[in-house]
């Protein structure tokens, strides 16, 4: 290409414009930000819950591990906060149950489904809740205005709102300082332990439940979760709503 001064000036001008819009593109050397190298990565994180092995003890261990790690306050009223909790099989999967089903009253773990097509993300007016590239539906507590549209939007009752200042219900000595507490007036929910995955660890409930919860990349045919989904019969909650839940129940 024949170059001349006019062309050069044009190009330089465009480059300057580009650089002013997106400075990180310019300049050699290490990029300003990077991920932790040991972090676990996936195309699509998913969880499979083995309902046949869910004993009371296992579930309590998983709940305690999660709620202690994330400083989830224990509030004994209908204004409570739950990230992972117990429901009967029927309440979870009533649209795929019938009166003579053995498992009707079986207690089962419940948590955010980290839907592939999450209505909570669609309705949030500030993008305070958003989908990460690896499919985790995350909350940005700094940005949430507390309108609770996401709670109305969630068809699974996975979200809790901080009606109270959660610090009132947390013991100062027992606060886990590796994870923030929340402000009054924001919504929260299970995060698939995104912060642990980024540091190379598996979710707290998966570790605590030892072999009852399978976790991994559902797009990877070799992954543990994909293997078990291939071998056994499983259900997701309310599939007809098209939210594409990524928490599978093995039965």
């Amino acid at each position: 290409m024949k170059s001349n001064r006019r062309k050069f000036i044009k190009f330089a001008g465009l480059a300057a414009l580009g650089w002013s819009i997106c400075p990180s593109l310019a300049g050699a050397g290490p990029s300003r930000y990077k991920r932790i190298e040991e972090g676990l990565r996936a195309e699509r994180w998913a969880m499979a819950i083995d309902t046949t092995k869910l004993t009371q003890e296992v579930m309590e261990r998983a709940i305690a591990a999660c709620h202690e790690l994330h400083n989830v306050p224990r509030i004994e009223s209908d204004k409570n906060i739950k990230w992972i909790w117990v429901e009967t099989f029927y309440n979870l999967i009533y649209d795929q149950s019938h009166p003579y089903l053995q498992e009707r009253q079986l207690p089962v773990l419940t948590l955010c489904n980290h839907c592939d097509n999450p209505p909570c993300v669609r309705v949030c007016p500030t993008k305070a809740t958003f989908s990460r590239e690896d499919g985790i539906v995350l909350m940005d507590f700094h940005r949430c205005i507390g309108c609770r549209f996401c709670m109305a939007g969630c068809p699974f009752g996975a979200r809790s709102f901080n009606y109270y200042d959660p610090k009132l219900f947390l013991d100062e000595d027992e606060i886990n300082r590796d994870f923030p507490t929340r402000d009054m007036g924001v919504v929260e929910k299970c995060e698939f332990c995104a912060h642990l995955l980024d540091q190379g660890q598996r979710p707290a409930c998966v570790e605590a439940a030892e072999g009852v919860l399978f976790f991994g990349d559902v797009r990877d045919p070799e992954s543990e979760v994909r293997q078990v989904l291939g071998e056994r019969y499983s259900l997701v909650r309310k599939p007809k709503l098209g939210t594409e839940p990524q928490v599978y129940y093995l039965i």
């Binding site: 507390g146 309108c147 919504v187």
Partner: peptide
């Protein structure tokens, strides 16, 4: 109705 009205 907002939980965090200052962030309106």
């Amino acid at each position: 109705d907002l939980g965090q009205p200052q962030r309106l």
